[in-house]
Amino acid sequence: MTPAARVQSAIEVLDLVIASVRREGASADRIAAEWFRTHRFVGSKDRRAIRDLVWQAIRTCGEVPMSGRAAMLALAAADPALAALFDGSGYGPAAIVPDEPVAVAGLAPAWLEAQLAASDITAEQGVGLLGRAPLDLRANRLKTTRDALLAQLPVTAETTQAPDALRLPGGTPVETWPAFAEGLFEVQDTGSQLACRALAVQPGEAVVDLCAGGGGKTLALAAALDGRGQLLACDIDRARLSRLPQRAARAGALAEIRLLDPGRELVALADWAGKADAVMVDAPCSGTGTWRRGPEARWRLTAQALARYARMQADVLRIGGELVRPGGRLTYVVCSLLDAEGPDVIAAFLAANLQWRAAEQDVGAGTPRGAGLRLTPWDDATDGFFFATLQRL
């Protein structure tokens, strides 16, 4: 393909992504994969170039663009070489005409930028939210150590703030390596690893991962238990939870897995009421801290959805609190940088539950925010997180 044809192909993919966002359809990743599946003549180098253009455009446009062409023109406005490819030749895009629509560059839709500003996210921190994410591994202590894993990786890696973490370039095909099949590591962002560390799980304890999902944090908690104690992983999402047994078997992790019914969680968890030493509440959230991995998510979030998340977060925090024994602890985690989903949720819980207090957290990274810590890509080179550890008196 010519460079101009790559630009036109990126415009076609962007049109599909924009249409999907407006109808709350499939993700940009899925749309791009399907487009490439139906355009098998596109070579690997062309695929990479097209994907790069698509994701650059998504990262550039704060509001949902009116069209793929408008989004690409926003890129071209700052790149004369790209603008020159709009020449109408061959399979390339039509020449640029005066006053045609050009998408506006920005961090996010205006209402969401206001929410971030109200949560004291600076312009520099906002830039970090839209960068390219690395790929972090967690050495599985049940089978190896970070140093031993580092010595056998086929590529160079660097360490991060988390004691078991190694960092590689994004896109490294780690799941094809023998060490992955052997369960020597899991893919897990350093920020997520630090959130697990905040719970300070010790061998022999009774631990609950209340919103286990696919089990990333569950496996980290299992490694901290070192095969001693009890670990319950539960969720209301059957599809996500169904991936955990295979992952746990590969990692050599021991955990009871329990599917919960929405609205009846405490009924199913009656045997754990007031008995857990430690509870992880990885609450559903807007994911504003993970835009590096899925930047079009900021086009999909609405104020109404944010309000729904806040209600769910308060509810799941309440449920988690019911499971903790006196003297036990709970860590609340969201991969969001909005105060409405982090500090505000914790402040409301503490105000309504005087038998709880905020506990000390020292994980080697993060900035105090309310009763917890905030991690950002700009400040900590992690995904964006808020987490707070609470102790029941």
Rank of each mutant, 00 (worst) to 15 (best):
D147K: 15
T159E: 15
D189W: 04
G213E: 02
T172K: 03
G128M: 01
L221F: 03
D147W: 07
D235P: 05
A195I: 12
L112N: 07
W111R: 12
Q246N: 15
L184N: 08
C211S: 02
A253H: 07
T218N: 02
D237I: 04
F180V: 14
A200D: 15
D226V: 08
L112V: 11
T218D: 02
Q230W: 11
G213V: 01
L210V: 01
T145S: 14
E124V: 02
E113L: 09
L232W: 08
C211R: 02
T145Y: 13
P178N: 10
C211A: 01
P178G: 09
A253R: 04
A251K: 12
R228V: 14
V207F: 03
F180Y: 15
G215W: 01
K217N: 00
G131T: 02
D235S: 10
P169K: 06
A118L: 04
L112H: 10
T218M: 01
E113M: 10
G191C: 07
T159R: 15
D226G: 12
P178L: 12
A212I: 01
L221W: 06
G216K: 00
A148C: 11
L168C: 07
Q202H: 13
A239W: 14
V201G: 03
C196Q: 08
C196G: 15
I121Y: 00
L142R: 03
L135W: 02
A212S: 03
V187H: 13
E205I: 03
T218P: 03
D136E: 06
T160D: 13
Q152H: 11
Q161A: 15
S192P: 11
